[in-house]
Design a protein around this nucleic acid. Structure first.
Lengths: 251, 251
DNA sequence: TAGTGGTCTAGACCACATA
DNA sequence: ATGTGGTCTAGACCACTAC
């Protein structure tokens, strides 16, 4: 009790205690010690483990909650965030109908157009931090709302973490794809960055979306990352924006 | 000292103390008591004024800083956020060049195409929380990068707060338009929401941007708000995305 | 009733900026 | 040397949830 409290468990550098605690919690999240949806130990418990005050643990958790990695629930505990929760489903999908709410038009009808194992091209490899030629899973699917094909998505997943993923399993899954990644492959996406452009479709894309070659479409290239910013998915979407729009809030 | 600390200055409801403090600070910000770029009183000072602990003031300021309304600077103080700071200039502009950094291509060349006083149409009135027919200022301008016209913007401002704004003053201003709104009209934009679509230009738009009628463009409709979510600007942008893209980070 | 996170306080010390 | 925000602690009490 005479020496200052130490929370070292392999953490190297000098930084505020609560940042070190944050890093330790992050490590355990990444290691899968606490799985999505499950509660992490209480603040008092963690404070005892790490030999720091509850206030310091609290500040570490505050940051992780602000980053959407943890969710606090008063009276219940602190939980590992998940894409499965009703509230935050489709957290990364910003396309909303011009009229009504996303819920009002019901869930999307999904069609897997293609799903196969390929070798990473140069740009896919760069996006996923792989080497060209490395095995990746390539998927093409169409999302329709009220019978109208609205989104065409091509996505690439690194072969290693997603070993065993097939068109059948994709087609059978109900609910968000990111929820399946969590529960079936232990890959939780925590952050994504998107590049948007206006483009015209090629003939394949136009026919899959049921539009002409002169229809402007919103191109959305997304790279989704898991813990520690490791890229785990490249997704290229083509959105019809005749009855929907991409909504963005600037803080 | 015997009674519980009270921070009431017209605040009505029961809510955490720090939320009440936050509301009080917000009021003073809105009233212009502390202007953009200026420091607000120190935490100790505010704690004394409001008769609460420094920790409570700190938590209130933490939230306001997270919302980009205040900026903390260690050793110096806490300052009212402003669009004038080098770091956060063009905070609401998400169009970046495909290669290089926004800075590398230098500031945009700006041309005011049109600027006049009109009566609000139905949709402009709705966006700005005015009544149809109310006076508004309508501006059209083109932004070019490296000689290439890239952005065409139409914007509408409520006539009252922006009385005295003319094409000359707009053309003469160097730096971000939102900085001018702050320093010349006392209107600080704190939040914005955008709706994005892919569209084709009409003939006027195409000629101003130097593109064909078949060139897909990114349509960005923005409503910018000042304190307390009051809408103060409607802006409709058309972005060329052949050498730029709209970058968005999803937390 | 017990356990959780949420609020509030008081005080100590540190890091940074300025004079 | 002084004043600012940043960190850390310890303890009290509140609000919510579950049993």
């Amino acid at each position: 009790m005479s020496s200052p409290p130490a929370a070292d468990a392999g953490t190297p550098s000098f930084s505020p205690l609560y940042q070190q605690i944050r890093a330790l919690i992050l490590q355990r999240l990444q290691a899968g010690e606490w799985r999505p949806g499950e509660p992490i130990p209480s603040e008092i418990d963690l404070a005892a483990r790490f030999r720091v005050s509850q206030g310091t643990v609290r500040k570490a958790i505050d940051e992780l909650a602000a980053d959407n990695l943890l969710v606090r629930r008063q009276g219940k505990g602190t939980f590992v965030a998940t894409h499965a929760e009703q509230q935050v489903q489709y957290r990364f999908l910003k396309l909303v109908p011009d009229e009504g709410t996303p819920a009002s038009e019901g869930p999307a009808e999904r069609t897997i157009v293609d799903c196969r194992r390929v070798r990473a091209s140069a740009d896919v490899a760069r996006a996923l931090a792989l080497r060209p030629g490395d095995p990746v899973l390539q998927v093409r699917r169409v999302l329709a709302y009220g019978g109208e094909p609205t989104i065409l998505e091509d996505l690439w997943l690194p072969g290693g973490p997603f070993k065993g993923l097939t068109a059948e399993r994709l087609a059978q899954w109900r609910g968000p794809m990111y929820e399946m990644f969590e529960s079936e492959f232990g890959v939780r996406m925590v952050r994504a960055e998107e590049k948007l452009r206006a483009v015209l479709p090629d003939t394949d894309q136009a026919s899959l979306l049921g539009v002409t070659l002169q229809t402007p479409l919103l191109s959305v290239e997304r790279i989704a990352h898991t813990y520690h910013d490791a890229p785990m998915e490249l997704r290229r979407g083509l959105y019809r924006t005749d009855a929907h729009h991409y909504r963005n809030d600037l803080g």
